[in-house]
Simulated scan of single mutants.
Amino acid sequence: MKTGVLSRRRMLTGAASAAVAAPILRARPARAATKLRFLMNWFAEAEHGGFYQAKATGLYKKAGFDVELMQGGPQLNAVQLLLGGEADVILGYDLQLLSGIEKALPMRAIAASFQTDLQGLMTRPNVKSFAELKGRKVYIANSGYTTYWPWLKKKFGFTDEMAAPKGVGLQTFFADPTSAAAGYITAEPYYAKQRNEDVNFLLFSNDGWPTYTNPLVASTDYLAKHKDLIRPFLKASMEGWKSYMADPTPGNNLIKQMNPKMDDGQIDFSLARMREIKTLESGDAAKLGLGCMTEERWRKTRDFMVEVNLLKPETDWKQAFTTEFIDDVHVMPS
């Protein structure tokens, strides 16, 4: 990534009289852009589109930042890199963040990427509700056992006997017509489409799953030392998302440059699903603006985690987030 600079203002003087010497006005040197390392939670994709759009269209540069967008991946421990000083901001996960607060890890969410969580269960078209899946096989990732699976057990009576490893390429799901597979509305249904398989997708959020998607997280040390940077960074990021949803071309070009394996079909599918479920502008965002978070929503996530023994009741859960920065941003949905 090249280092950007703030635009330089030139000061022009009128023509000098031959008899009167004009004073020399020197332009002040441009101030170097502030470097900020932003680590994604996966390889470049449409689900990160607003951030790539902010980079590609110069929104970050205009706000005074040289943002390095770093790709994530399955082998990266984002929290470890954040607390080790290798990243300034990361895309995190609500439940992981609250568990970290229980362990006194010094980090805090500063905004939410999406209001509607993209996670859910992919089923055959005839399955219209989670309740209909009771007793059937549900293929899930290992991380699901300590996130959404306890919620499904509590709310819909699922049992551990129903859960099975998701497997590579969703082969287990395609081989079992009565089953369901956990995943993201922007991803797994696309793989099914590639196989000409008709599927339905049940979003957890539509049945009370409380978490946000991809909250932006910084260490408490970074927030203390760079408090003045957070609002302009968040504003540029949310303006990037608004711009991306209107015309994603610049962001998509950068996504494909960063991740050559990402194809137009996947990007278009993901973006269409994000628009369909209004993941950016649903809920509180309609009144509070893109990226907003509320204490009430975080409380619901905390209460769920305590109820299913994923979080100790005495954990100071309010330390997991702060709304002081995003509350003043107010980038409203179109």
Rank of each mutant, 00 (worst) to 15 (best):
E47K: 06
T34S: 11
A236G: 01
L290K: 05
E307G: 10
S334R: 13
L202E: 05
A141S: 13
M305E: 04
L82I: 03
Q119F: 11
A285R: 01
D66W: 09
I90N: 00
A285S: 10
K312A: 15
N309A: 06
K134G: 04
R273H: 07
D328L: 11
K155C: 03
T159K: 09
R108H: 04
W241T: 00
V5K: 14
D263P: 04
L39V: 07
E188C: 11
G85P: 02
D94N: 15
N206T: 12
N259R: 10
I90C: 01
F174W: 12
Y222T: 02
K2M: 13
L39M: 08
W298H: 05
Y212F: 06
A19Y: 12
D221F: 07
K193V: 04
A111S: 14
F51N: 05
L254F: 10
Y190D: 09
Y222P: 02
F233M: 07
T123C: 10
H330Y: 09
L82E: 03
K256F: 06
D328V: 11
E47N: 12
V79T: 13
A236F: 05
I185H: 05
Q319F: 00
A63L: 02
R231V: 14
D264I: 10
N77F: 09
A46D: 08
A285Y: 02
Q319P: 02
K155S: 07
H330D: 08
V79Y: 13
Y60T: 06
K153C: 14
P165A: 01
M162R: 03
Q194G: 07
K225H: 14
S7T: 14
V329K: 08
A286D: 08
Q96W: 09
P177Y: 01
K256A: 12
K193C: 00
H48N: 06
L69D: 00
T116E: 07
D160K: 00
F43E: 13
A286I: 06
T213M: 09
T211K: 03
D207P: 02
G100I: 04
S143I: 13
G283L: 09
S243K: 03
G144M: 09
S7Q: 11
G84D: 07
P125H: 08
G73L: 06
A175R: 03
G92Q: 02
W149I: 07
T57D: 15
D316A: 15
E188N: 09
K300A: 15
R108G: 00
I267G: 00
V20Y: 11
L91S: 03
Q119P: 00
A63V: 04
T279K: 03
S282K: 08
Y212D: 05
R299T: 10
M274G: 00
I24G: 05
L69M: 08
D198S: 14
N77T: 05
I255Y: 04
I267A: 08
S99R: 15
V199T: 15
G4S: 15
G169W: 09
A16K: 14
G183E: 04
D176N: 05
G49L: 08
W241G: 03
P313E: 14
N214R: 10
G157H: 05
S205E: 12
